[in-house]
Write a protein that binds this DNA or RNA. Structure first.
Lengths: 107, 107
DNA sequence: AATTTTCTTGACTATTTTTGACAAAGATAC
DNA sequence: GTATCTTTGTCAAAAATAGTCAAGAAAATT
């Protein structure tokens, strides 16, 4: 299962493009793009969407890879990671079924 | 499924304690504790641990409630939330089985 | 092998987010 | 109706994030 950085690097290399070109497209420094591909920086949601369009790949797939990476990063050093993810799933399911219960996530 | 704020509030009210007391124990302003209970502020990991000890409840359970809330908050406005959580689970499982593969989560 | 291009990294800055304090207003309890 | 408790708005400090720039390392080209 690839993380978003690996995916982006493979997409770019498959087109034989230098970081410079992608970075210019996103209007950021190549240094940042390098770090994103190596998993040292997080891409923003908007950057992922632009990249999906650029590479002409499924926006959803790319966003899932990106968001799941963010989640993994959030729980990674916890040994209760899996437990927490399962509970989070329950909470998300519950919330989407009953839209009224957004009550306590107002942060 | 209760979120961490509800849990903390119920614990406190079951002991009939004012926010002031818990806040003093955590060395924060009661206003902050109020917001934590109402889900408007995130507690820190350390605060949760202290509270588990204070209320004499399972630290693990409290941490799971807390961490899953954080995860839910991270994915909440995405309609790919569930997909992302499932992928995140896979990634976490994979990572713990093969410790070598921390490679691309170095942020 | 030398040169050019690309990539990576470290140091620095700016911006945004988070965290907490304080005070005032709103509830509740007595 | 006074006192206590809770909530909310605003502000400042601290921390986290996102970016630039430049120098060195690696890779590709000639």
């Amino acid at each position: 299962m690839k993380n978003i950085g690996e995916i982006l690097r493979e997409l770019r290399e498959s087109k034989q493009l230098p970081l410079r070109v992608i970075a210019a497209y996103l209007d950021i420094d190549p240094a940042i793009m390098s770090r994103i591909e190596r998993g040292q920086r997080k891409a923003s949601r908007e950057q992922i969407i632009k990249l999906a369009a650029y590479f002409n790949v499924s926006e959803n797939e790319l966003l899932v890879a990106w968001l799941s990476d963010k989640v993994v990063y959030e729980v990674l050093d916890e040994d209760i990671a899996l437990q927490a993810l399962k509970v989070a799933e329950e909470k998300v399911k519950y919330q989407t079924k009953d839209n009224n219960s957004n009550k306590n996530f107002e942060i």
